[in-house]
Design a protein around this nucleic acid. Sequence first.
DNA 1: TTTGCATACTTAGCATAGCTAACCGTTAGC
DNA 2: GCTAACGGTTAGCTATGCTAAGTATGCAAA
Lengths: 146, 146
Amino acid sequence: MTKKQSLEEVGRSLHRNAIHLLRRLRAEDSAMGIGPAQASALSVIVFGGPLTLNELAEAEQVRPPTMSRVVEALVREGFVRREANKDDRRSVIISPTDKGTKTMHEGRNRREKRLIKLLSKLDANEITCLEKGSIILSRILAADDS
Amino acid sequence: MTKKQSLEEVGRSLHRNAIHLLRRLRAEDSAMGIGPAQASALSVIVFGGPLTLNELAEAEQVRPPTMSRVVEALVREGFVRREANKDDRRSVIISPTDKGTKTMHEGRNRREKRLIKLLSKLDANEITCLEKGSIILSRILAADDS
DNA sequence: TTTGCATACTTAGCATAGCTAACCGTTAGC
DNA sequence: GCTAACGGTTAGCTATGCTAAGTATGCAAA
């Protein structure tokens, strides 16, 4: 097998598995009572500290209008706060509320329990394999700038 | 580090990377002129041979009404065909058209070029690592029945 | 045979999330 | 101070997820 064919197969496999893994975990997100985009954004807000809407949109790789609506839903549910930025009154600072922080930690636990349940069928060697693979993936994703 | 902590870390890492990988590839799917759910379903139809709507829904892990609408869109665009099943006239056999097959191969090429561009920074050993990890992932996802 | 339940799929209706275009208020550069 | 750029929102479209309910077919038991 040529190197290119091998790359194609690995890529295809990664793609399908990423899709299915996320579909599996989505159920846990929705147990939090919020959709996947809201859950992911709330995670960034809770664990990544207060930030502006544009920063959040960039972190989540969506357009500002999309993020604006996601934040609106999170505000409506009381998970986050919008505050005026004193330095630049055009922009908005988004911070987690106590409820948002608490919910996110619970949600993360639930999602991770699900993952742990999946992963616990593996032996130590297989875990190491997955771990290495994931690290490699994160490295090439971070290095990719397009 | 305990085994549980290790599992948590691997799980979190996998989750994050799956999200980012898919966001990166979404642009290539939409270059085909169809959304991600349609692209994924078309892939199964083209490479997995003719199959019924229920089989397709199960393969994609969505409910039948969702898949029914996805197939409807694919039929409207001329990518797939719905045919009566002679053996059981309740069910429908979904097959790719020539256009669907051609488009899927092109789309796959485009998506894979993107992936290959990402993966080609790696050496053979790292590719092997990713490959093993992906295979392990697919195995536990397939084995998980909840 | 017919009656009645189960199965395969569709339709209707709702919510979330993605996008672009167009708008408003603020800031900054000339 | 005028104008261009920027941060964010609003409006409106599409895609995709769901449940509930409807239709047509198949199967099995009375």
